[in-house]
């Protein structure tokens, strides 16, 4: 799953450490999410969305579409 976490972080000129501190997670977690190695839990994704003031699907981009009946 693609994500725009790094773009959003850079827009605010935050380091990974700064974002990690604001979200209460480790820098390794932020780095792993930004490099698409780890998909965060739903609570963490919601916290990210709240922090950046955008909907979750603006941070995490999923190209899946349901099949039409």
């Amino acid at each position: 799953m693609e994500n725009r976490l790094k773009d959003l972080r850079m827009q605010r000129e935050w380091s990974q450490g700064e974002l990690a501190r604001r979200l209460g997670v480790s820098r390794q977690t932020i780095n792993a999410v930004e490099t698409d190695k780890y998909d965060p839990s739903l609570p963490l994704a919601l916290h990210m969305a709240k922090l950046f003031g955008v909907p979750v699907d603006e941070i995490f981009i999923d190209y899946w579409q349901p099949e039409e009946d």
Partner: peptide, 8 residues
Amino acid sequence: RHDELYKA
């Protein structure tokens, strides 16, 4: 002590 990445 670790966060969710370690647990995952």
